[in-house]
Design a protein around this nucleic acid. Structure first.
Lengths: 123, 123
DNA sequence: CCAACGCCTTACCGTACGGTAATGCATTAC
DNA sequence: GTAATGCATTACCGTACGGTAAGGCGTTGG
C-alpha cells in the first residue's frame, strides 16, 4: 500500500471492526459470547477443537482492539463479553446506510423461521 | 489453515461477503454504488487516485464473487451496481442477531443528523 | 515461599491478500 | 480492415494475517 491518498474520511474507527468481523472464527466467538453472555478463554477454547489457546487469545485481542468485546479479570481467569456500545458505534453508521437492503430479506427470514425452527437462511 | 475442523456450518455464503467488506476500498466502492446507483469501472477509477484500473477491477471481482454487486455489459463498458438481493441474503442472518446492539446508537445517530441532510436511505 | 495453573506475549512459518505491470479479448471508431 | 479503447486476466511482489510453539508474568493453592 504505497499511500492512503484514496481518501477515507468517513467511518473512522470502523475499519478495525470490519477487519475483525472478516474472520469466521471471530464471528463465531461473537456468536458464543452473544449466546452465553460472558465466557473465559478456556470456555472458548473448548468450542474450537482445531485451535489452541494462543490462537483464541489472539482473536480475542483483535476483537478487543476493534472495540467489539470487553475483558475483565476474575481471579486468574479473564472473562470476555460483547462490548455492546463499541459494537453499536462501530457498525451503526454502516447499518444506517444499508439496512434497507437486508430489511426485506430479514422479514422473509423471520417469517420462514416461524415454525420451521431449522437453520435455513435461504430459499 | 490445516483443516476447518473448527466447524462452520452456519451462514454458508456469508463468509465471502464479510471478507469482501473487510477492505475499506471495497466498502467505499459500495458506498459510491449506493449513491450513484450504477457506475462503470472508469467512473470508479476516477474516485481512487491511488489505484489503477486493475486494482479496482480486482476489488469489483471480489465484490461480485461475494454476491454484493452485479455487473452488466453496456457497449464496451461494464456497469456495476449493488446486488440488493445478494447483499440482503448475505447479511440478513447476522443483522438479525446483532441489530439490537446498534439500534440505540442508530437512533442516536439519526437524532443527531436531524436537519443536517445527510444520506438518508429511507423514511 | 514455592509449585501449578491460566492467560498474555513473542517469535516464527506458511499462505492469502492488496497492489502494480503486462497480456488478452472483446467492442468501438476511423 | 486496422487502430484504439475498455475491461478482464495473468503473473509477480511485498506485506499482513492466521496458526502453532515457546516463554513470561500474575494468580491460586499447599
Amino acid at each position: 500500500m504505497p499511500d492512503d491518498a484514496a481518501g477515507r474520511p468517513p467511518v473512522p474507527g470502523s475499519d478495525e471492526a470490519f477487519r475483525a468481523l472478516a474472520d469466521p472464527t471471530r464471528r463465531r466467538i461473537l456468536d458464543l459470547l452473544a449466546d452465553h453472555g460472558s465466557l473465559t478463554v478456556a470456555d472458548l477454547v473448548a468450542q474450537f477443537p482445531g485451535l489452541v489457546a494462543s490462537g483464541i487469545s489472539k482473536h480475542l485481542m483483535a476483537l478487543r482492539a476493534a472495540g467489539l468485546v470487553t475483558a475483565v479479570r476474575r481471579g486468574r481467569h479473564q472473562v470476555y463479553a460483547i462490548d455492546a456500545d463499541g459494537l453499536g458505534r462501530a457498525l451503526a453508521p454502516w447499518a444506517a446506510r444499508y439496512e434497507a437492503y437486508w430489511a426485506e430479506a430479514l422479514t422473509r427470514l423471520r417469517a420462514a423461521s416461524t415454525g420451521t425452527a431449522g437453520t435455513d437462511p435461504r430459499e
